[in-house]
């Protein structure tokens, strides 16, 4: 019998939809955990991530913390997968790149019609610092594999995971619903 692999799933700047689609593999999650221990999911913040065979990373790099995290994940993961459109090409998360960061922040925390006059800007030392521009994973680290989709279809996710966990290279031309969006 093959030794059990280690799997991590990480959430950076995304909506969690990719993780929800991972859960949409439904009962097959039990097949996955037969082959791999899920050692980290979905949070790595402030924690050392153990060495893993596969890391699925959802979302774009939007802040100082994400930047540190993705570098660390790269070091720890044998196979790093850009998981979903935000990770692959920033997608909706990157739409703020068309505007200066200050305007983006002020729109929510200063100028929103529902805001009262006594608000403060979020700037506590415990909070992450937003980068000026959102970037996809491959602008920061080498990515080994991409699964496009917003979110990727659950069957595709399962296929890719299952192949990799069985030491085979997934062939994306074989999956049915492969597309951006």
């Amino acid at each position: 019998m093959m030794s059990k692999k280690k799997l991590a799933t990480v959430w950076l700047g995304g909506c969690s939809g990719c993780h929800m689609s991972l859960l949409d593999i439904d009962e097959r999650i039990l097949d996955v955990v037969k082959l791999a221990d899920i050692v980290k999911s979905p949070i790595v913040d402030g924690k050392e991530m153990p060495e893993v065979d596969i890391a699925l990373v959802e979302g774009s790099v939007t802040s100082d913390e994400h930047f540190r995290e993705i570098l660390h994940i790269r070091k720890q993961a044998k196979t790093l997968i850009a998981f979903g459109d935000c990770a692959v090409m920033t997608n909706v998360t990157g739409m703020r790149n068309y505007f200066p960061l200050k305007e983006v922040i002020d729109t929510a925390y200063v100028n929103a019609v529902s805001n009262d006059a006594e608000g403060e800007l979020p700037n506590h030392p415990c909070l992450l610092k937003l980068n000026d521009k959102v970037v996809p994973l491959q602008e920061v680290v080498t990515v080994d594999f991409v699964i496009p989709g917003c979110p990727p279809d659950a069957d595709t996710i399962f296929y890719v995971l299952f192949e990799l966990l069985n030491d085979r290279l997934p062939d994306l031309s074989k999956v049915k619903k492969l597309k951006y969006g």
Partner: peptide, 8 residues
């Protein structure tokens, strides 16, 4: 109405 706070 809502208020922005510095810690969140």
């Amino acid at each position: 109405a809502e208020r922005s706070v510095n810690w969140s």
